[in-house]
């Protein structure tokens, strides 16, 4: 049952990607029957191959639509803003060369793979921080911080509100 669901969901995911790719191809675009049938066949095969790997141990948590909206909002809002700040920060440091690097550890308390990944990638793209390692067992984040202000920081000191967002979206 679970396997079939995984297969079907992966297939649907692949089909969506494929239809996105062919959105404006051909004279009928998305609704060309040939494209649709080809996409179905492809999606079935892709589901067969990727279905086992895509889903995290039966967790279909990401299927809830409000998480997608949150994710979109997060990307366009706080994340983008932090990224812009990050770049100005790097520009500043490139020009002045003023750095105080170090690798610090903190534990944001995230449980799921997706949440950790989201947080790690957010950290990597935002001011002065770069995820070096994530401990699988404890969930500790080891972050290379370009301007260390505290040797044992709280999560908020390193990455602001990101853990909250990650928890809201992915857990």
């Amino acid at each position: 049952m679970c396997k079939a669901a995984e297969w079907a969901l992966t297939a649907a995911f692949s089909l969506a990607i494929y239809l996105l790719l062919v959105l404006w191809t051909g004279s009928f675009g998305l609704w060309s029957p040939a494209e649709f049938i080809a996409g179905l066949v492809l999606a079935a095969l892709a589901g067969l191959v990727a279905g086992r790997l895509l889903w995290e141990r039966g967790g279909f948590r990401m299927l809830q639509p409000h998480r997608w909206l949150l994710f979109l909002f997060y990307i366009l809002g706080p994340f983008f803003w932090a990224m812009a700040k990050a770049n100005l920060d790097v520009a500043y440091r490139v020009i002045t060369g003023r750095i105080r690097p170090g690798i610090v550890r903190f534990n944001p308390g995230l449980q799921t793979d997706l949440g950790r990944t989201l947080l790690a990638n957010s950290i990597t793209l935002t001011p002065g921080t770069l995820t070096v390692d994530v401990d699988d067992a404890t969930g500790d984040f080891y972050v290379h911080w370009i301007n260390v202000t505290a040797e044992d920081p709280k999560p908020e000191q390193v990455c602001g509100a990101f853990p909250t967002w990650a928890r809201r979206i992915a857990e």
Partner: peptide, 18 residues
Amino acid sequence: SVVVRTIARLLLPWVLAF
């Protein structure tokens, strides 16, 4: 690490469809 594994998982349908 878990990051790479998750991203690889996510990327797999994209790669196959593409």
